[in-house]
Computed example of a mutant assay.
Amino acid sequence: MNISTILPMMQTTKASKTLSITIGYYVAFLMFGLVAAVLGPTLPGLASQTHTTIRQVSMLFTARSLGYLFGAFLGGRLYDRFPGHPILSIVLAMMTIIIATVPLIPFLWGLLTLLLLLGVIEGVLELGGNTLLVWLHKEKTGPFMNGLHFFFGVGAFVTPLIVGQVFLHTGQIQWAYWILAILILPSAGWLCRLPSPEIQSNARHQEQNAKKTFLVGVIVVLFLLYVGSEVSFGGWIYTYTISLYQGVETTAAYLTSAFWGALTFGRLLAIPFAAYFAPRLLLLANFIGCLISVSLLLIGTPSLTIIWIGTLGVGVSMAPVFPTLLTFAGRHIQITAKINSWFCIGSGVGGMTLPLLIGQVFEIYGPQAVMFTIFADLILGLGLLLGVMLCSFRFRQA
């Protein structure tokens, strides 16, 4: 067998292995999405299970968010030191155990502990998927990153349907958690048998990134602003709508589902665009689309039709921002797990703080404060994006 025969076979084998690894990441993020969306629709059931009020059991969200921040920080240290696939397999297995245990805990403090640990696992999992995909595909990451977050959206979209059907047939939430645990378990073994991407954190890369600390910091703040606006819109559109119009609770619920559905569809739609357009152009288009869509909701008291149009527009426009911003960062910075952990921490802080701020101004200024706050956040984000683009250009010239 000569060299001309061996090389194509080696390339085919490598491409097949890369495809298998990519599918493994997609499956992991599909499971992540399933788990990420389960708490909201099961919150009343968990309150009944622990004999607490909705206000008390809502502390589970805070515990989970704090755990996520720690998990992102921890993951940045783990993935820069150890092969990534065993770590992903372990956290998926741990996620299975925690999800299966949640319906068995009758005490709020017990659930708080579990959700804190679940947040840690989710932080390690999300950081790992984002980082390892960049290491696997390098400069061709763009469309694959949008695909990764599309599968997260699919999982988040499916979970409420599972919960609804389980509750419809049993009147309880236990089987919803156990079904998710059964779905997650096989995914833990997928990546364990495949080689992990090469760790990208040697001394040369650390020195290179040290020269770009300011650029990293600015991108962290940009993640904070974007995720804050995404979580705020998805979390407040229901309350915003029912505050403007009485008796539209069902419509408001559909609007919430429509937003997350549009976010998922937008990520699928962005995959071919990410393959042909530079990340900076996509980000500019996305932020401008978000601003135009939100501005529709700022003109007087918008009709329900306008609210629908604005909500769908925001969802589709926001969809590619997170994965595209990761791709953009990878074009200008050698991405290590430690650096990616700061991106995740910025995202977690944004998802915690802006919705809380809106809750404070909502009581004072009414429902329009929701959209004004999100609009201001996006304006600041667009300005910062332009600053990041300028900084990245200057660093390329350095």
Rank of each mutant, 00 (worst) to 15 (best):
I6C: 03
P8E: 01
P8V: 07
M9R: 12
G24H: 09
G24A: 03
Y26E: 09
V27S: 04
L30P: 00
M31R: 09
M31W: 11
L34F: 11
V35L: 08
A36C: 01
A37F: 06
A37P: 03
V38E: 13
G40D: 13
G40N: 15
G45N: 15
L46S: 13
A47E: 10
T50V: 03
H51F: 14
T52L: 05
L60P: 00
L69V: 02
G71M: 09
L74K: 01
L78K: 02
R81W: 14
P86W: 12
I87D: 00
L88P: 02
M95C: 12
T96H: 03
I98F: 08
I99H: 00
T101K: 08
P103A: 04
W109S: 13
T113G: 05
T113M: 11
L116G: 15
L117V: 15
L118A: 04
G128W: 09
L133F: 07
K140E: 15
G142E: 02
F144R: 04
N146D: 01
G147C: 03
F150W: 03
F151Y: 11
P160K: 08
L161F: 15
G164I: 00
G164W: 01
Q165M: 05
F167L: 15
L168E: 13
H169P: 03
H169R: 14
T170E: 12
I173P: 00
I184H: 09
P186G: 13
S187V: 14
W190D: 03
P195E: 10
S196E: 13
P197V: 08
Q200T: 14
S201Y: 04
S201F: 04
R204M: 08
A210R: 04
L215E: 00
I219N: 12
L224M: 02
E230N: 07
V231A: 13
G234H: 05
Y238G: 02
Y240T: 02
Q246N: 15
Q246G: 15
G247L: 06
T250I: 08
A252E: 01
A253D: 11
Y254D: 05
L255D: 07
G261M: 02
A262K: 00
G266N: 08
L269C: 05
F273K: 01
A275I: 09
Y276N: 13
F277A: 06
L281Y: 00
N286R: 11
F287H: 13
G300E: 10
P302I: 02
T305N: 09
S317L: 03
V321R: 03
F322G: 00
F322H: 10
L326I: 14
L326F: 12
T327C: 10
R331H: 12
R331P: 04
A337L: 06
A337K: 05
W342K: 08
F343Q: 11
I345V: 14
G348E: 11
T353Q: 01
L356E: 07
L357I: 04
I358W: 00
Y365C: 01
G366R: 09
P367R: 10
Q368Y: 08
F372D: 04
T373A: 02
L380W: 03
L385W: 02
L386N: 13
V388L: 06
L390V: 11
F395R: 13
Q397I: 02
